[in-house]
Each structure stands twice: as structure tokens, then as C-alpha cells.
Simulated scan of single mutants.
Amino acid sequence: MHIVGFAITFGAWVAEAAAGRFRTTRVMDYGLLASLLTGLALAAPWPAGVDLNYPKIGVKLVILVVIGGLLGMGNARQRRTGEAVPRGLFAAVGVLTFAAAAVAVLW
């Protein structure tokens, strides 16, 4: 489910990029929320004595917070102006989402 959350966020990002709209959507927010909640569940030391990879958890949490901030800024800008978000901000959401999924799978 953790990877699915990132896939939802990235899939919504790809759909918006393919349509040329460069907007953040609620689906991206929901995917990010799913990634956060499942990540917290995975990071909890359920059985006693399990060694967790704290550097990986820290890196993923920082990436997740940055993505959340970018999505929040994009949503606020869209509500205020009604226009699409800047391309740099939009691209950063996609790159960071892909990076978070890559860290989850490869590290």
C-alpha cells in the first residue's frame, strides 16, 4: 500500500502533465496521505527487537514533507489565482514523488 500511495500521486501527476494542465489535484493529496499513513505503520517497530533503517525512514519523511509542502503551495495558488502552478513546482512534485518511490524500492 505504501508504494501504491506513491503510484497514485505519480499517476495523477503524469495524467496532468500529459494533458498539459500543470495543476495539482486532490488525487495527488490522497496518494500522499496514503503514503504517509502506510509509511508510519511500516516504521513502527511492531515486534520488539526489530532493527529499523532510520536513515531511510528519515530521508523518506523529508521527501514526503517537501512534496506535501509543494502540493500545499500549488493548491493555495490555484485557489487564489485560478491558474496552473509554475512548471518548476509541478516538475518538482513529479521528480520527488518518483524519487520517494525509488528510495522505498531500491534502498
Score class of each variant (00 low, 15 high):
3 I>P: 08
99 A>Q: 06
37 L>M: 10
53 N>H: 14
74 G>S: 06
60 K>R: 14
97 T>I: 13
4 V>P: 07
37 L>Y: 01
46 W>H: 08
29 D>N: 08
33 L>V: 09
14 V>I: 15
69 G>V: 04
68 G>S: 06
22 F>K: 13
78 Q>I: 11
97 T>E: 00
81 T>R: 04
68 G>W: 03
2 H>L: 15
11 G>K: 04
20 G>F: 02
31 G>K: 03
98 F>S: 14
2 H>E: 14
46 W>E: 02
98 F>C: 09
5 G>Y: 04
20 G>C: 01
77 R>C: 02
60 K>F: 12
80 R>Q: 14
34 A>V: 14
23 R>Y: 00
100 A>V: 04
99 A>C: 05
69 G>T: 11
102 A>T: 12
36 L>K: 06
73 M>R: 15
34 A>E: 08
53 N>K: 12
60 K>C: 06
26 R>M: 11
79 R>G: 13
7 A>L: 15
82 G>L: 04
102 A>N: 09
33 L>F: 13
100 A>S: 09
31 G>Y: 01
47 P>D: 00
30 Y>R: 03
55 P>R: 00
31 G>T: 04
15 A>P: 05
3 I>M: 15
42 L>M: 12
3 I>F: 13
10 F>P: 08
81 T>F: 01
99 A>S: 15
58 G>Q: 01
44 A>G: 11
87 R>K: 12
88 G>V: 02
79 R>D: 13
49 G>M: 05
50 V>F: 14
33 L>M: 11
89 L>Q: 06
101 A>C: 07
